[in-house]
Amino acid sequence: MINKSKTPKIISWARKKSPWILHFNTGGCNGCDIEILSLLTPYYDVERFGILKESTPRHADILVCTGPVTRQVKTRLLRIYNQMPAPKWVLAVGSCSCSGGVFSGSYNILGGIDQVLPVDMYITGCPCRPEAIIDGIIKLLEEVK
């Protein structure tokens, strides 16, 4: 999403070391949200990787979405995505947000997050384990230039 040839080394280092996430539920069952929140507890403590959970899209680098995209939430999801300053990445957490999961085929959903936004990393599981989310974020950051 960003021009890879131009970024100085120190900036890409800083981007790797300080991913601030914004958590958005696009219509899931709340199972994955609880797993994401458990990342902040002492047991998993993601602040050791510099990950902070921000509450406004303006401060965030990574949009962490859970659940399938419902017809109602689509415009809000796009709006939140547009409010984030570049460079930004999207993480689809849970089977629902990867493909629609147990909700796929339902009349009121559009499918996974990739129906609406460009997704950079998919993390499956219903709900996915916190270890898997950490692994996904770290693998995403390895791609960051």
Binding site: A14, R15, G50
Partner: peptide
């Protein structure tokens, strides 16, 4: 604060990385 809460806490370069990253981000 992280240690008081039983967490590990960020590495020493964390504030530097945060600031650098913010300075290199889009401003809207």
């Amino acid at each position: 604060i992280a240690r008081f809460q039983g967490r590990v806490g960020p590495p020493w370069y964390q504030p530097w990385a945060d600031l650098l990253k913010l300075f290199a981000k889009e401003d809207i």
